[in-house]
Design a protein around this nucleic acid. Structure first.
Length: 154
DNA sequence: GCCAACGTTGGC
DNA sequence: GCCAACGTTGGC
């Protein structure tokens, strides 16, 4: 099993919105970065656990856990001219972008802020706190995952 | 809103 | 394949 950190801007899509979705499940669409896409397409598997991270907001940090419930399939928003995520270079015959489905699992009793992560020595190797690292989908080690869960009160 | 750091694009 | 210009990310 693999562990991941997924970033989302809460103004666009928050952890609470995931919880309020049908079956608490939503498609992770709109990823338009090749490295993040490759992770989704090749390495994100059903049953993998996801740290749900809120970015670009007053309180950046990890809010809770989600689980991958469907593996990569074409991101249809890339074919939709009305969508903000439209990409003319992606076609149904040759889709360029992919998405997975994730399901809300558990909210942390304690929000784990970015500041707290930065203050934790054992988490200094996380991509999240590395200089210039902007990937919206990042692999997380088992140890890092477990430590964040413990900081979150699980 | 600023700005540093990246990623992507496209001319050559 | 180089690289300048541009766009995006995301913390502050």
């Amino acid at each position: 099993m693999n562990y991941w950190l997924f970033k989302s801007e809460p103004d666009t899509f928050s952890f609470d919105q995931l919880k309020a979705s049908k079956n608490r499940t939503e498609a992770w669409d709109g990823v338009r970065n090749y490295q993040a896409r490759n992770f989704m397409r090749d390495e994100v598997h059903c049953g993998d656990l996801v740290l749900f991270y809120h970015s670009s907001c007053a309180q950046p940090g990890v809010v809770g856990l989600a689980e991958v419930v469907r593996e990569a399939y074409p991101d249809h928003t890339s074919w939709d001219k009305q969508s903000d995520y439209y990409d003319p270079k992606s076609s149904q015959e040759n889709p360029r972008w992919f998405m997975v489905d994730i399901k809300w699992k558990k909210q942390f009793p304690h929000f784990v802020s970015l500041a707290e992560i930065k203050d934790t020595k054992a988490l200094q190797n996380m991509k999240l706190v590395q200089r210039g690292q902007r990937l919206s989908i990042q692999p997380v080690t088992k140890k890092e995952f477990e430590l964040i869960c413990s900081l979150g009160g699980l």
